[in-house]
Design a protein around this nucleic acid. Structure first.
Length: 489
RNA sequence: CGGGGUGUAGCGCAGUCCGGUUAGCGCGUCCGCUUUGGGAGCGGAAGGUCGCAGGUUCGAAUCCUGCUACCCCGACCA
């Protein structure tokens, strides 16, 4: 098997994750701490995710726009909860010019170029957007307003990790305005469904849809919905959120509309986003000690073909035909005809990059009218016939996609435990990890106490769950339903 | 901001405790020959302000002082 390029998961999970990011050519560190360089292969995966999500947003009636990176500092403070939540992690622009250092080498900030109002680099765009919506909305005829933007944002985190938590990250943020509370709530729920659909059916990442507790809610929201995924190490990852913002931002930015009865009302709002963090989830859901494993629907290259032992006229011609057939079926295929690398080297690279199917074509195969094929998810090797290859591979890609989701679901089921006492809760958290389903009395005090004692947080109150009478694992007070606890990224 | 670790060739590292020729090794790169169904072999070559700044010394990658960057673990968070 592969030389030990990648630290084993069992040995050191963090090192394993970093090794995958590095050796699968997804990203590397930049000169600025917490910022990352997303390399072409990593970006190609993100592009596929982005394109699919964008299509799903358009299919649900949204349009794209772009709002600026810089926001006047005063905007942030208009919504009290919002500023409270984000103030601690904002990058601030204070000057607009540099000058040669009068005392020596290099450049320094020109003190005469101080801005009259400081600007913040957006940590999210609610404020600039609601400032703008005020001018765009005056009548119920202007509603709903369904806008998304693809953008970068910056949150000055204390501790960063490639993709999972970076200072600058890429995301999309939807910002919608509605004439009624019900419609806004329906929008927030709809986008949660879109995210769950995307995560499960495209990323093969099973997620739990749920509601955040007051403590975990987005700063400025009345209700936050979340999709929560479970990673291989038993830690949860908040993978996307959709917020019902009530009239908080409408009130803060004075956005009113005239309804059909000629009465003035505040607008109802939502916002929702997923980010490059999903890439981290993708890695930690599927990959193994040989490298990345990509679900076919997101993989930039679905089939990699390797000439055995190296390219020659006969093999090239045969591969050319195979590629034409695969491309005709819409399959993304790549021929690795580098003469300098040997097959074994290529095999390992293809595994590191997580390409779903690898095909080897050599003289011996062609004499038999077959090829050598290996699927990345199971590493199963087979020698299928060249006849009907394209159809077979089309089917196999779907099978791999399904298998990856099934496998991830099975692991999540294995790592989800119901407990009824605090001792049991601590025991499971310590020795097994994963989601823990338990009764909670509904108070923030209890939630924080449990967090303090165990480091576990309430990931969500799952939606569509049967109500069940019980007693809180910590306080013994009555509870109407179970919630999901976990240690989280 | 606390605790730990690391900075030596493009990458990964040894050497530092106990100062002493020209700072090594593996991978990669370049040249040549031989190989070729799971990270090829042999021969040759190029490639270094030893993180930065001071200090001690005849002499510093090595000792002392200060600084700095990055990684990991915590507190904070999508």
């Amino acid at each position: 098997m592969a030389k030990e390029i990648i630290t084993e998961r069992e040995a050191d999970y963090s090192a394993w994750y970093n090794d995958i990011v590095k050796h699968a050519n997804l990203a590397e560190n930049s000169p600025v701490k917490g910022c990352m360089i997303i390399k072409p292969y990593g970006f190609a995966i993100w592009e596929n995710m982005r394109d699919q999500l964008d299509k799903m947003f358009k299919d649900t009636g949204h349009v794209n726009a772009y709002f600026p990176l810089l926001i006047p500092k005063s905007f942030l403070s208009k919504e009290a909860e919002h500023v409270e939540g984000f103030a601690k992690e904002c990058a601030v622009v204070t000057h607009h010019r540099l000058m040669n250092n009068p005392d020596g080498d290099g450049v320094v900030v020109d003190p005469s170029a101080k801005l009259t109002e400081e600007l913040i680099v957006r940590p999210t765009s609610e404020t600039i957007i609601w400032h703008t919506y005020k001018n765009w909305i005056s009548s119920y005829r202007d509603l709903p307003l369904l806008i998304n933007q693809w953008a970068n944002v910056m949150r000055w985190e204390m501790r960063t990790r490639a993709f999972l938590r970076t200072t600058e990250f890429l995301w999309q943020e939807g910002h919608t305005a509605h004439a009624s509370k019900d419609e806004a709530m329906a929008e927030a729920r709809q986008m949660l469904d879109v995210y769950a659909d995307f995560a499960e059916n495209w990323m093969a990442m099973p997620v739990v849809k749920g509601i955040k507790t007051a403590n975990e809610r987005f700063a400025g929201a009345d209700e936050t919905f979340t999709i929560e995924a479970l990673m291989q190490d038993g830690k949860a990852l908040q993978s996307g959120t959709s917020h019902f913002l009530g009239q908080n931002f409408a009130k803060a930015f004075d956005v009113k509309f005239l309804n059909s009865n000629q009465k003035e009302e505040y607008v109802w709002a939502t916002s929702w986003g997923v980010s490059t963090r999903l890439m981290g989830g993708l890695i930690m859901t599927h990959s193994d000690d040989d490298g990345l494993i990509l679900p076919p629907r997101i993989a930039p290259v679905q089939v990699a073909i390797v000439p055995i032992p190296k390219p020659n006229e006969v093999v090239n011609e045969a591969v050319g035909k195979i590629m034409d057939e695969l491309k005709a079926k819409g399959i993304r295929v790549q021929y690795d005809d580098d003469k300098k690398k040997r097959p074994g080297f290529k095999f390992n690279e293809i595994e590191l990059r997580g390409i779903p199917i690898r095909i080897g074509v050599g003289k011996r195969d062609l004499e038999n009218g077959t090829i050598e094929m290996v699927r990345r998810d199971t590493m199963e090797k087979s020698n299928p016939s060249l006849d009907g290859l394209a159809d077979m591979i089309t089917g196999l890609l779907e099978e791999i996609q399904d298998n990856m989701l099934a496998k991830a679901k099975a692991r999540r089921a294995e790592l989800t435990t119901s407990v009824d006492s605090f001792d049991e809760f601590k025991e499971v958290l310590e020795n097994k990890g994963g989601f823990i389903s338990a009764h909670w009395d509904g108070t923030t005090e209890t939630e924080l106490k449990i967090k303090e004692l165990t480091k576990a947080t309430i990931r969500c109150i799952p939606l569509g769950q049967e109500p069940e009478e019980g007693t809180c694992i910590l306080t013994g007070k009555p509870s109407k339903q179970r919630v999901l606890f976990a240690k989280a990224y």
